[in-house]
Amino acid sequence: MSDTTRTSEPSTRRSSVRRAGRARPILLVAAAVYLALMVAWAVLPGLFAHGDPIVGVATDGLQAPSAAHWFGTDATGRDMYTRVVFGSVHTLVTALIAVLFGLVFGTGIGLVAGSVRGVVDAVLMRLVDVLLAVPSLLLSLSIIIVLGFGTTQVAIAVGITSVAAFARLARAEVMRVRAMDYVEAAFASGGSFVSVLLRHVLPNSLTPVIALAALQFGTAILSIAALGFLGYGAPPPTPEWGLMIAEGRNYIATSWWLTTIPGVVVVLTVLAANRISTAISERNRA
């Protein structure tokens, strides 16, 4: 008995490895399709949902998911599916701006710090350390309080929290690439500091940074939803995902779909962004 289990064990393990290997591209395709759907929702919400995300039919309040209302309805009778579709633009655009903000400023700081070194590096990195020292949610909240409420303000607030991660990664990559022979060779063949930096160092350090950007996209969505949940994001009745989860909280005992379905949409978006980030860094390694 024990003999048979022992001999069969390696073969099962091998086949499960094979299965995982085959499943991997399927997961990646699923992630890409899902994100593409989210983008389509954001760009052309009217094509996917015909109702009104703001004004509901009061008599249809708190209906469970059905053929007529895929995601159910909320207390004021608004169709949740319509609200989720129209909400995607708020969440995705805010997340995109946040990531771009972090990417541009973080990579810029990292590039300067990693290539100039010396005092500039020390000063910039201590500033980054300060950013890292403050909890990111607290930092976002303080920035929103300073900048005021609004989509752009939320985006900047979330973006600033990711500057530190981008700066650290970009600096490490720049320092790695800076030590390569081909960078020295570029200087030897007469390249000026800036031209070598832009032509050789930056492009060769960018791949892991792009992978981090995809990862940060997921994190940013989560942060934006969290800020919305706390009431620091878009004001009601905006169909923002985090705000929707917060609004549904009061009905969680009776109407599970109000929090669960937007929650699942957020989770899936984050997971899809993670999967794509992994694919980018894997391709980089290969």
Partner: peptide, 22 residues
């Protein structure tokens, strides 16, 4: 220094590291 390097060039040990892969 840039002008001086025009007449002074270098070849490295490792041809895998001395060419920009991109």
């Amino acid at each position: 220094l840039r002008q001086a390097r025009r007449r002074l060039q270098m070849v490295y040990q490792n041809p895998f590291g001395s060419l920009d892969p991109r």
